[in-house]
Amino acid sequence: MLFRKRTREMLLVAFFLTPALLVFFVYRIVPLLWNLALSFAFWSPGGSYEFAGLEHYTEMFVYDDVFRTSFVNTLIYMASMPLAIVVALFVALLVNARIRGRNVYRTIVFLSYPMMPVAVGIIWQWLYNEKVGLINYVLQSAGVIDTPIAFLNSTALALPSVIVVGMWQILGFFMIILLTGLQSIPQSLYEAAAIDGAGPTKSFFRITLPLLRPSLFLCFVIGVISSFTSFDLVYVMTEGGPAHATELLITYIYKTAFGLSEFDYAGALTVVMFTLFLSITLILNRFSGGEAGKVDGAN
């Protein structure tokens, strides 16, 4: 009797879990292993697999300049995220104050986050336009610059320009995460600190920042993810150009696989990208006390 009950329970659980697990098996686990296999093979669509050893990896690390550029660009993208987090923290502190209309402010700052990146990229490309773009117009009218700047066609400025858009879009998300963190800090701590004679600056650095650490790390992890996944913005705004100045690992992988049909090499690139991503997230996870890695990377 007991046995039958347990068997039925197992069957039920298995039945309920199967669809979801199947999806993850087919679209997460199998691809991961397949990439690994591709990275050690010579293979093109329709052909057969031949063992390649470390050939692709040697090519990548020794000869491939574009790989190096896209690798560095991805790291630059990632390293600029703390700037967005600082701004978001500032905004979060502001909208956490007891002021009228704070919900309206929150809504407006968050609004850009769920918008379609392809459309966002097109809009910003228009703002950056060399001849009639709003940004050049304002800078020229204010006398900051004399001649218009071709933001997205300049090898020096293209990457920062794209990163600014990425920050603009993700700022509201960071703000909400930090706001949630701020609201979970007990008010009594601030009262106690005030009684002990601590000023606002002191209580910010002694109470707010330390207690906000998990939220700050979570933001950074999300920033890291976005540096590995910001395909849409780059593709629409610059296509990785000029001269690969905005090439990220993900755009390079896409081009290699679906532009050049070099699936095997693109597989090796993916393995490197994934390894880098995983190491960074795991290190961050260590630092933050284990909570920060729990973010779905599918965005």
Binding site: I29, F274, T281
Partner: peptide, 12 residues
Amino acid sequence: CMMIPFQATIIP
């Protein structure tokens, strides 16, 4: 599986 970004699976 949550640690595997979709972008790392596109080819397979």
